[in-house]
Every structure is written in structure tokens, then in C-alpha cells.
Amino acid sequence: MTRRLTASGIVAGYRPDLPILHGVSVHVDAGEVMTIIGPNGAGKSTLIKAIAGLVTVSAGTVEIDGEDRTGTPAHLLAGAGVAYVPQTGNVFTTLTIRENLIVGGAALAKAEALARIDEIFTQYPMLAAKRAEKARVLSGGERQILAIARALLTSPRIILLDEPTAGLSPMAAAELFDLVRGLVADGAAVLMVEQNAKAALKMSDRAYVLAEGENRIDGVASDLLENDEIGRIFLGARPEDVA
């Protein structure tokens, strides 16, 4: 199995003197949906941002498809096959749908980007229908689809999703998880952070549990569903996040 991403011993934070992650290690293989869960403040989003190049990594390494990419600027990572969909503000609301996709293809040559946009429009007719409208008119679920479509434009091999189902209705969340499963069919890898731990574990292959900026438990997702210790780690979190 091809290893898409290896992050080892990551120390990172928004200020050098206040690290949020204290040496976290995760890896994701091709064809795998890997989920990171953990209580609020565990550093899940910081980890995903550190991998995407948005947060400075002060120690540890990030390897992508076997190459050391630690400290590579975010815009170059996008060209190297890493796509990142943030939790909030993940579409450009002042740009049209088509313009959102054009920005998504910034790392590609122009002709290639335009061809990919046509492919995306075939794949997602909803986006094609609203191509000239500003993204602010989209519903929450539609925005997530646009955000993922924008990220897919470069045909990434690693897709980082930060709480993709936050704020979605149960039905929209289920549809989104279906879409996420489909992303890894051709050998890409998904690393996802989810607050909705139970639903996320059900659709994932493997999972890591982070707490206080450190690795706690990891393993096959279905095993973790049965693991009692997770409840204790989540102590203080809302029960529906854990149950």
C-alpha cells in the first residue's frame, strides 16, 4: 500500500512560544479515509493546518508521497497534490461559482484548469447550473460541495477536510460522507477532522484520537467505535459528540 502522507513528531502553533501540538504523528495511505477525533482544544485543526502549510511547523517532518515537504509554502503544496478544505469560510463568497473554481486551479496551467472546470461541471450539475452566481447564494451543503470541488480541481492525492459536516443537516452530512468515500476510490487519501465522532468513525478506515496536542489512541475505525477509553478522553465534551 502506498503511503501518501506521513507527519512525524509535529510541534506547531500560532506562536512559536506557545505550541499547540507537542509532537503528533499520523500517516495516511492511498485509498484510505482517515479521521482525527478528539475533544475541543486537542489541536485537530492546528494539525491539519500545519500539514497544509498554513501553520509553521517548528519541529517534526511532513512527508508527501515520500518526499519531505516540511515548511513548503501552502500555495506550492497545492501544486504538489495536497488539497485542504477549511471548516469555515471555505468558499469565496464574493466570487462566482466559476471564479471559485478558477482560483482552485491557480496551481495549474490555464488550459488544464479550464478543462478540469468543465469536468467538474459535468460531475456536479448543481455547480454548473449556478456557475455565474456568487457563492454566497449557496446553501450550507452546496457550499461544502463547491469547497470540495474547488479542492479537487488539481486532482489532489491528499485531501485534508476540516469538519466537513459542521452545520449540515443529518441528510446533507450523510450525502457528504458518501462523496468523501468516493474521493479515495482512485488512490487518493483523505485526512478528515470531525467533531461528529461516531458518524465519522463509521465511514472511516482508520482513526486517531488526539488530546491536548498529543496522540492518544489510534487504530481501525470500527475498533475505536467500541473503545471505552474514548469516552473518558472526551470527558467534558458534549455527550452527543461521543455517543
Binding site: G53, L54, H75, A78, F92, E99, A106
Partner: peptide
């Protein structure tokens, strides 16, 4: 277009591949 995108959200523009 990249300029307008950056105006709205520099980080999102960055991860989309905008320099």
C-alpha cells in the same frame, strides 16, 4: 480573480494554490 480571492480570504487563496 486571484486578487479578489485574496482580498476575501488570503489563507483560502493560498491553499488553493494562489501565490
Amino acid at each position: 480573480i486571484a486578487m479578489r480571492a485574496t482580498a476575501e480570504s488570503p489563507d483560502l487563496a493560498r491553499v488553493s494554490g494562489v501565490n
